[in-house]
Simulated assay, not measured.
Amino acid sequence: MNTSVKTSTAPIDSGLEERLDLILDSIRDIKGKQIVRLDLRQLDDRPAEFFFICEGDSTTQVAAIAGNVQKRMKNELGDLPKTASGGRHANWICLDYFDVVVHVFYPETRTFYELEDLWSDAVITEYETL
Rank of each mutant, 00 (worst) to 15 (best):
R72V: 05
C54H: 15
K82H: 03
K71P: 04
E55D: 14
K74Y: 05
D79Q: 12
S85V: 05
R72P: 15
T60Q: 15
T83R: 10
Q70W: 00
S85P: 00
G67P: 03
A63S: 13
L80K: 13
I65C: 09
E76M: 06
K74S: 04
A66M: 11
S58Q: 08
E76S: 05
K82I: 00
Q61L: 11
L80C: 02
T59Q: 13
D79M: 12
D57K: 10
V69K: 14
L80D: 09
E76A: 01
E55C: 10
G56W: 12
E55Q: 15
T60M: 12
A64L: 06
D57A: 14
A84I: 07
T60R: 15
T59H: 03
V69T: 07
Q70L: 06
G67W: 03
E55F: 04
V69F: 06
A63R: 14
T83S: 09
T83H: 10
L77T: 06
D79N: 09
D57Q: 15
S85R: 05
G56D: 15
M73L: 15
G67S: 10
S58M: 06
A66W: 14
S85E: 12
A64N: 05
N68P: 03
T59C: 01
G56V: 13
C54W: 12
G67L: 04
T60N: 15
T83P: 08
D57R: 15
N75I: 01
T60W: 12
G56S: 13
E76D: 14
P81Y: 05
D79Y: 03
S58V: 05
K71M: 04
L80T: 04
K71V: 00
L80W: 03
M73F: 07
G67R: 06
G67M: 02
A66Q: 13
P81L: 04
A63P: 09
G56T: 13
A63Y: 03
S58T: 14
I65L: 10
I65M: 09
T59S: 07
L80A: 00
L77R: 13
C54S: 13
Q70T: 06
G78P: 09
E76V: 02
K82V: 03
A66H: 11
K71L: 08
A84R: 10
M73W: 02
K82N: 00
K82P: 00
A84F: 00
L77N: 06
A84Q: 13
K82E: 01
S58N: 12
M73P: 11
K74C: 00
D79C: 07
K74P: 09
K74Q: 09
I65V: 12
S85L: 02
K74F: 04
G67C: 03
N68G: 00
G78A: 02
A64Y: 07
L80Q: 06
A64K: 10
G67Y: 01
L80I: 01
G56R: 11
E55A: 06
A64I: 07
V69D: 12
A63K: 14
P81W: 05
D79F: 04
A64V: 04
D57E: 15
T59P: 07
I65Y: 13
A63H: 09
C54K: 11
Q61C: 07
A64P: 11
N68I: 03
E55S: 10
A84L: 06
V62N: 10
E55M: 09
S58R: 05
L77V: 02
Q61T: 12
P81V: 01
S85D: 06
K82A: 01
T59K: 05
K71T: 02
L77H: 08
A63V: 04
A84Y: 06
T60G: 12
K82M: 01
A64H: 11
M73Q: 10
E76N: 09
